[in-house]
Amino acid sequence: MADISSDASSTAIDVRPLARRPMLEISGVSKSFGATQVLCDVSLSVAPGEVVVVIGPSGSGKTTLLRCINLLEDYEEGTITVDGAPIGYRRRGSERIRMSERDIAAARATIGMVFQSFNLFPHMTVLRNIAAAPVRVKGAPRETAEARARELLAMVGLSDKAAEHPARLSGGQQQRVAIARALAMDPKIMLFDEVTSALDPELVGEVLAAMQQLAQGGMTMVVVTHEMSFARDIADRIVFIDGGVIVEQGKPDEILFAPRTNRVRAFLKRYNDRYRI
């Protein structure tokens, strides 16, 4: 993988053959909040259609990593590309150049993000929540965007809620609308940040099912979750992060049942003690 990052650094646009080009490539990203370093030289490459689950203790930098990917959080070092296109920073030789706000916004439109707290727009109906960005950002005709929004609502099982406002929906329903809203932009990759953590236990299943379906449809996904059995089901690869560094990564069964490092073992033991699995 070492040659790939130097490869990418020589040109702005990745020209490797499609099959070999990662959908998401994070190279050498470091991020601090003031004096505390939260991400230390993180590199991660995700293949098209791959589902990577990120686990780790609270405060380890999982949310920050996801937020750096679509530049909701700025980072001091490193670069990130999605499908070969830089997000936020380009490399020219050894120089790292920040893209214009307009280009960054356009790049963000290719990344779908779902938050722990749903973050739907409370003043818009469910349908408008989903169709607004395709119409206003991508310039899609309203009828097309709304027809697509209804398709997506049907996909997440909420066809009858199109005209409701978010406040009238349960948490699980709101989160499924949030997933539909992200999908409406036809993203190349979807990021999920503990999307079931704010939900009542009985509502978790419906959201996980929607994600499961998405993964089966071939969507490239980076998923931060504490639902270990879900992680095992959905992940092609699990990445364990602690203290802002990737400590260990591998196939789900390797990480969950045969971890190589003590930190992962300790994390899983704490987790299992808490949830008695």
Partner: peptide, 28 residues
């Protein structure tokens, strides 16, 4: 802040965010 994050995450530019997400709620 979450409202800004959601709008930015969808690729909205700042004027667009203000117009369709932030100001309608703030004015209300």
């Amino acid at each position: 802040q979450a409202q800004w994050d959601a709008a930015r995450g969808l690729g909205m530019t700042r004027p667009l965010m203000l117009k369709i997400v932030i100001l309608p709620q703030a004015l209300r």
